[in-house]
Amino acid sequence: MTLIGLDPTSGPLPEPVQRPAPRAASLEGAVVGVISNGLGESDRILQAVHRELSELGGTTGVVFVRKPSVSVPPDPMDWEKLISQVTVAVAGFGG
């Protein structure tokens, strides 16, 4: 006599993405997004990155986004801003 067992999952797992996003060849003309998750000293270091990028020249703009929580995605309006305006993004967190 055989035994039937049901699959307990919500479906197959997606293939994990192991590779980093391709590095931009240049920041010339780029609009840079800086996304802080708010953990630890991330605000401080990413504000510094924001400032450096703003002063660097060559970029056409920098958009700074701070997530409302370390544990949730950016607000929908911030997502929209990133998607519609940004060509290169830097995300980070700090301990």
Partner: peptide, 13 residues
Amino acid sequence: QAPAHEYRDYAEL
């Protein structure tokens, strides 16, 4: 709706 799997016995499951 869950996919079903058939086994010879408990140990195999």
